[in-house]
Design a protein around this nucleic acid. Structure first.
Length: 496
RNA sequence: GGUCGGUUGGCCGAGAGGCUAGGCAAAGCUCUGCAAAAGCUUCUACGGCAGUUCGAAUCUGCCACCGACCUCCA
């Protein structure tokens, strides 16, 4: 079906993509924890896998894309009193935990919409799968790789490895070294081994989010929900599991152990990890407190920003670097992205205006266009190389511009090649990269009519060489944030 | 300390033994009342030192920086 290759974190190399059950593809992405606003690094990951989802669909696969919402309490301090993130935040804001969940879920969806993310086909919640999580915990106990201790249940890493498994293989960790690193941590007395991790955690009475279980009242451990939901909706083995690099250990490592422990087989064929996002050279993270929220880019309301940047500008900036590379956001980079995006969108507009004109086909030109079109697929097949795709689209844009400037007609390539140019350029720009033309979309009819009038008046004054009036209109509009663009074919405007 | 990654032109960023991405900036040009916008053209870089090779930014070794992860995190 395709020549797609994917860099698999598990094997540390690019592998040919072969779905288990083509044309169906199962894709799982670790979703947000909805106890605060989704931050931009998070958004980068979701945009990266939106690209993966879009391209798989573009290739004709039938994709089930599962991205969870983590709305159950996660431990913040497993060894200590067992604090619950949802609960902590609830006390601060004096809200019910599910109110917080609702608030930030709505906010997350709003960000997804702005950044033009396609919705996943299933968006399951952790609290909606408590029963299944209890079941998997029980199964792990039955299979001899988990044990109950003082109302909690832990995964038994040693027992798991004794069965011939290798906890740590995804992230390249060595168990002995890990244990050495835990030596100083306290409160490990419930565990047989410091690297054992919680599947089910006993809740103290003041916990608001807790459920009954065979081990008493409590709540699920950090890593269990993803194992449960991926298995439930994608099967015991599925194609692609995605997430940020920092989830490799321990989260994804634990997921593998839970799945293998419960189901007896390797759960994931291809593990994909996105790299981290920096701002001005520094890692953007919740813990460092330097994160800019996606909405703040759009409103421009942040001391580190000079002005608002549209969601599409940010998305374009992300697409300019490979998902597996670190990405450093700077003001200069945002400004560059804004211009680069506009260039591609202009070419798309020009392309729509081109008329095919039968004439002698120039074999070389025909071949050039065809090769550039084919290259779009070739580069995307190479581990979703969006930056290289953009480079190819720019080359196509140059060809489109040349036609546009040559009387808006295409006369030196075949009709078939012209059709290929149109479907390729639009298909990759809009459908695969998920970019859209915000300037065109923002217009409304009333404003358009007013602007037509203003442009007409200015045109009249220009014809009578009344430069004072024409320049006054131009400057006043500029002050209002509207830019006048004169060209051979007339005057247009753009809201800046 | 352990594990993994990185160092590419003024800036950003792909690539990965010979075919010298692309964007932004800059310069020149076209258009133009001026300007802006738009477009065309030009601009041969890969941390240092050795080595392998006919040939290295790309492979190997050493060194120097930078960063990520190692029970908050995408």
């Amino acid at each position: 079906m395709s020549d797609l290759t994917i860099y698999n974190t598990l094997s540390r190399q690019k592998e040919k993509f072969e779905p288990i059950n083509p044309p169906y593809v199962g894709l799982y992405c670790c979703g947000p924890t909805v106890y605060s606003d989704v931050h931009l690094g998070n958004t980068r990951t979701f945009i990266s896998f939106d690209l993966v989802y879009r391209y798989l669909k573009f290739l004709g696969y039938k994709v089930r894309y599962v991205r969870n919402i983590t709305d159950a309490g996660h431990l913040t301090n497993e060894a200590g009193e067992g604090k619950n993130r949802m609960e902590d935040q609830a006390k601060l804001e004096k809200l019910e935990p599910m109110e917080i969940v609702q608030k930030y879920t709505v906010g997350f969806h709003e960000v997804c919409r702005l950044f033009n993310l396609l919705p996943p086909t299933i968006e399951p919640t952790a609290t909606g799968h408590i029963v299944e999580q209890i079941e998997m915990t029980q199964k792990l106990i039955d299979n001899g790789v988990a044990y109950a201790s003082n109302g909690s249940v832990y995964f038994d890493v040693n027992a798991y490895n004794a069965k011939g498994n290798n906890y740590g293989k995804l992230s390249g960790r060595n168990i002995d070294e890990l244990i050495a690193g835990y030596r100083d941590l306290d409160g490990q007395d419930e565990k047989r081994n410091p690297i054992d991790f919680a599947l089910w955690k006993k809740a103290s009475p003041e916990h608001i989010m807790q459920w009954n279980s065979p081990w008493g009242s409590g709540f699920p451990g950090w890593h269990l929900e993803c194992s449960v939901m991926s298995t439930k909706y994608l099967g015991k083995q599925f194609d692609i599991h995605a997430g940020g690099m920092d989830l490799k250990f321990p989260h994804h490592e634990c997921e593998i152990a839970q799945n293998v422990g419960a189901c007896g087989n390797e759960p994931v064929r291809y593990w994909m990890h996105t790299n981290m996002l920096n701002f001005n050279g520094q890692k953007m993270s919740k813990s460092l407190g330097n994160s800019i929220l996606p909405m703040q880019f759009i409103t421009g309301e942040h001391p580190l920003l000079d002005k608002p940047y549209s969601a599409m500008t940010v998305r374009f900036l992300f697409m300019q670097s490979h998902y597996s590379s670190e990405l450093d956001i700077t003001i200069k980079g945002l400004q560059d992205a804004e211009k680069g995006l506009r260039k591609l969108m202009n070419a798309a507009k020009y392309l729509a205006e081109l008329k095919f004109d039968t004439a002698a086909s120039d074999e070389q030109q025909d071949k050039l266009i065809q090769e550039l079109c084919n290259e779009c697929k070739t580069v995307m097949d190479d581990d979703f190389n969006a930056p290289k795709l953009l480079a190819t689209l720019y080359e196509l844009a140059t060809q489109i511009n040349i036609y546009y400037n040559d009387g808006k007609k295409v006369s030196n390539i075949s009709k078939a090649t012209f059709n290929q140019l149109q479907t390729t350029y639009n298909g990759y720009l809009f459908d695969v990269l998920g970019l859209s033309d915000e300037a065109a979309a923002g217009n409304n009819e009333a404003l358009d009519k007013v602007m037509q009038l203003v442009i007409d008046i200015r045109k009249q004054s220009r014809e009578t060489k009344d430069w004072t009036t024409s320049d006054k209109i131009r400057d006043a509009l500029k002050n209002a944030g509207i830019e006048i663009k004169d060209s051979k074919d007339g005057t247009t405007y753009e809201i800046g």
